[in-house]
Design a protein around this nucleic acid. Sequence first.
DNA 1: CCGATAGGTGTACGCTTGTACACCTCACGG
DNA 2: CCGTGAGGTGTACAAGCGTACACCTATCGG
Lengths: 188, 188
Amino acid sequence: MAVAHRPKDPQRREKIIAATLDVIAEHGISGTTHRRIAAAAEVPLGSMTYYFTGLEELLTEAFMLLATTTSARYVEILDAATTRAEAREAMVEIITGDIWETPRTLTLSYELYAFSIKNERVREVIRHWMSQSRVAIGRHFDPMTTYALDAAIEGLTIHRSFQPEITLDMVREIVDRLTRNDAPTASL
Amino acid sequence: MAVAHRPKDPQRREKIIAATLDVIAEHGISGTTHRRIAAAAEVPLGSMTYYFTGLEELLTEAFMLLATTTSARYVEILDAATTRAEAREAMVEIITGDIWETPRTLTLSYELYAFSIKNERVREVIRHWMSQSRVAIGRHFDPMTTYALDAAIEGLTIHRSFQPEITLDMVREIVDRLTRNDAPTASL
DNA sequence: CCGATAGGTGTACGCTTGTACACCTCACGG
DNA sequence: CCGTGAGGTGTACAAGCGTACACCTATCGG
């Protein structure tokens, strides 16, 4: 009984998941097919059903990757802040910074929300993302303010992508207003 | 030369557009097909290509209907307010009120945003919706505050749908903070 | 050096899709 | 009462889809 024949490419799965995000970003979920993903990941079509039960599972895993990656970026930016002023500026950076420079992340978010309607597990992923994000914000602000800021990221990001006239200074002013009545917490 | 044979059902087009929104709400754009729309509108398949050039046109028109309808509702609620306090309460109602009671409108919004990535005309529809909405809000608040409130509708609506613990009072508090430094305009 | 077997893939199947268009219906001018 | 043409539809077609699985490949214990 031979054991033999190790996987040639142990990263195959991850490569496919990453490629899935690329395909969604470019074609939307309705244009995302096994064949296109296989082409993007440069793997044979057969690998799709070998590594994943179906398209739905693949999409779900892809969105988990998106949430993890983006969420980690939030945490990174917020944890770098040590003063209240820095924390405010960190919020401004999250809203206006390079995460959303490319339309990619924003596009993927839209598809994520749309997909979440049909998939409870993805809804869970979103809730987890939001909660992670609240933990990071909550290190600097009280709970009430934290909810407000978290929602502000969402709203301002979206609106800025359609209305570029919303300047950096306006975002700063909005963050200021939202944090003005904050009851400072222990913080770090 | 006969003139003859008037359309049996002059509302056909509108009926199809309305049915399209229903199908999108239930199945998402990726599950929206000519056949399903035809079934929902109780119209033969042939009517699809008779009244609309293609699926894309149909989706575009459907989203125009969504924008018009929802936007009109905003205006209605905001125009009913005559004092500053009422205007603030109107904002709270828009964010927490019956527009979003059913997941329908929110679901459709997600699909709208996702679709806008691929369709310039729909992006234009969104910009128009936002601008209408800003006009209505702007009757009560200064421009800067208006942008903030408009974005707050978006962010809070979305976040509340995932985090029901965001209460009405929290929304009120957030609207308060955003409008506190407002430089009152002439208003009505 | 030779099975045996884990790992991986090419191909083919049944189905659904968007779309076009040949055809049908029937109100009306003559 | 008939012929005409505007209005509308059933049907058929090619393309593309998800998915399953028979088959191939290459390693390694013996």
